[in-house]
């Protein structure tokens, strides 16, 4: 388990976090390669089912990165995303999974350093939690299928 490298999915808003990731790249700020970025037009587009499916398919952690409060390009998409993340946390808790496997973070387009830091911190968190409970029972192949 000490060599555990988590698979992490990050749903990143085109207007902020995705641009911040770009900036991190251009400034050569490194962040863990565990994080797989999915670009979305707004975090309001990310539904609870997307987070659930990512976990179902084998992600060890999932986070949604949206704009700072009050800065959503579509008014309140980031707030909706927050509510959905909270809902998934509740479902995971009910199932006996660690709710920390999903998270919502907020940043602006200029925060390349913050993007990298978030990726590092979240990767650390998931490393501490260990592999997804779905992978612990020899179900890895199914989980990944």
């Amino acid at each position: 388990m000490e060599n555990f490298e988590p698979e992490i999915v990050a749903f990143c808003c085109h207007y902020c976090a995705y641009t911040a990731a770009d900036m991190a790249g251009s400034k050569r700020i490194s962040y863990p390669s565990n994080v797989k970025i999915i670009r979305v037009p707004c975090t309001g587009k990310v539904d609870a089912i997307h987070l659930m499916k990512a976990l179902e398919k084998g992600a060890d952690g999932v986070y949604v990165a949206g704009c700072l409060a009050g800065d959503c390009h579509f008014k309140n998409g980031n707030l909706r995303a927050q509510a959905r993340v909270d809902r998934v946390k509740k479902i995971l808790t009910e199932l006996g999974w660690e709710p920390e496997r999903v998270a919502m973070v907020n940043m602006s387009a200029g925060m390349g350093e913050k993007f990298a830091e978030t990726a590092r911190e979240f990767t650390e968190t998931i490393k501490k939690l260990g592999p997804s409970p779905g992978k612990l029972t020899g179900n890895e192949s199914k989980a990944a299928s």
Binding site: A48, I49, M52, K53, L55, E56, I91, L92, E94, L95, G96, W97, S132, P133, G134, K135, L136, T137, N139, K142, A143
Partner: peptide, 12 residues
Amino acid sequence: LLASALHLNSLK
């Protein structure tokens, strides 16, 4: 969502 939750449970 419920289907997905039930899947997660069976995985565990």
